[in-house]
Simulated scan of single mutants.
Amino acid sequence: MSARTKSRRRALDVLFSADVRGDTIEQALEAESLRAASRPERANSWPYAREIVQGVIDHEDEIDLLITRHSTSWRIERMPAVDRGILRMAVWEARFNDEVPVGVAIDEAVELAKELSTDDSPKFVNGVLNAIVKEPALGS
């Protein structure tokens, strides 16, 4: 598993944890930062995981608006928490991180959905993300 894939898993853990516990993403990020500082064996995957989570925090309103606009099957509040986290992370990578090719962001998100969510989730995640990346970015 690549370092970036591990980082995405860690970022998803933070987003999922915040969601199911009812914490803010900032609170979950801080808690994970403290854990990461005490686990040097995980040092390689933490910087990018932190960047992803901070990116989701910084663009949360726009990310959720995009997901809401392009999810015809589910309101964002009704989605499984893991799907919501995967989508938020992937939208940030595809829309706000120029270092990650859009196709990679989508492929990684679909793989996480296959592994961690329902049987219908990979198709759902793929459809929502493909619709989002086809929409012109604000200010374009």
Score class of each variant (00 low, 15 high):
Pro40Ile: 07
Pro40Tyr: 10
Pro40Ser: 03
Pro40Gln: 03
Pro40Glu: 04
Glu41Thr: 14
Glu41Tyr: 08
Arg42Val: 14
Ala43Glu: 14
Ala43Val: 11
Ala43Lys: 13
Ala43Gln: 14
Asn44Phe: 08
Asn44Leu: 15
Asn44Lys: 15
Asn44Tyr: 09
Asn44Glu: 15
Ser45Gln: 15
Trp46Tyr: 09
Trp46Ser: 02
Pro47Arg: 01
Pro47Thr: 09
Tyr48Leu: 03
Tyr48Asp: 10
Tyr48Val: 06
Tyr48Gly: 02
Ala49Tyr: 08
Ala49Gly: 09
Arg50Leu: 08
Arg50Ala: 12
Glu51Leu: 08
Ile52Thr: 08
Val53Trp: 01
Gln54Glu: 14
Gln54Trp: 04
Gln54Ala: 09
Gly55Asp: 06
Gly55Cys: 04
Gly55Thr: 03
Gly55Trp: 07
Val56Gln: 07
Val56Asp: 02
Val56Met: 08
Ile57Cys: 03
Ile57Ser: 00
Ile57Gln: 05
Ile57Asp: 01
Asp58Met: 01
Asp58Arg: 09
His59Ile: 01
Glu60Pro: 01
Glu60Trp: 03
Asp61Met: 03
Asp61Gly: 09
Asp61Arg: 10
Glu62Ala: 14
Glu62Ser: 12
Glu62Gln: 14
Glu62Trp: 05
Ile63Glu: 06
Asp64Ser: 09
Asp64Gln: 13
Asp64Val: 04
Asp64Phe: 08
Asp64Ile: 04
Leu65Thr: 13
Leu65Trp: 15
Leu65Tyr: 14
Leu65Gly: 11
Leu66Asn: 05
Leu66Glu: 11
Ile67Val: 14
Arg69Lys: 14
His70Val: 07
His70Lys: 11
Ser71Thr: 03
Thr72Asn: 10
Thr72Glu: 07
Ser73Lys: 12
Ser73Thr: 09
Ser73Phe: 09
Trp74Gly: 05
Trp74Pro: 03
Trp74His: 15
Trp74Ala: 12
Arg75Pro: 01
Arg75Ile: 06
Ile76Asp: 00
Ile76Gln: 00
Glu77Cys: 01
Glu77Val: 06
Arg78Thr: 06
Arg78Cys: 00
Met79Leu: 15
Pro80Gln: 12
Pro80His: 12
Pro80Asp: 12
Ala81Pro: 12
Val82Arg: 08
Asp83Met: 13
Asp83Cys: 14
Arg84Ser: 11
Gly85Met: 02
Ile86Gln: 05
Ile86Arg: 06
Ile86Cys: 10
Leu87Asp: 02
Arg88Thr: 00
Met89Ser: 14
Ala90Phe: 02
Val91Ser: 08
Val91Lys: 04
Val91His: 02
Trp92His: 07
Glu93Gly: 02
Glu93Phe: 00
Glu93Trp: 00
Glu93Ala: 10
Ala94Leu: 06
Arg95Ser: 00
Arg95Asn: 02
Arg95Gly: 05
Arg95Ala: 07
Arg95Ile: 06
Arg95Val: 11
Phe96Met: 05
Phe96Ser: 07
Asn97Lys: 08
Asn97Met: 07
Asp98Arg: 08
Asp98His: 10
Val100Phe: 05
Pro101Trp: 00
Pro101Ala: 09
Pro101Asn: 10
Val102Ile: 13
Val102Leu: 01
Val102Ser: 04
Val102Phe: 00
Val102Thr: 14
Gly103Arg: 05
Gly103Thr: 03
Val104Met: 11
Val104Ile: 11
Val104Arg: 15
Ala105Glu: 01
Ile106Asn: 03
Ile106Asp: 02
Ile106Cys: 04
Ile106Val: 15
Asp107Ile: 04
Asp107Gln: 14
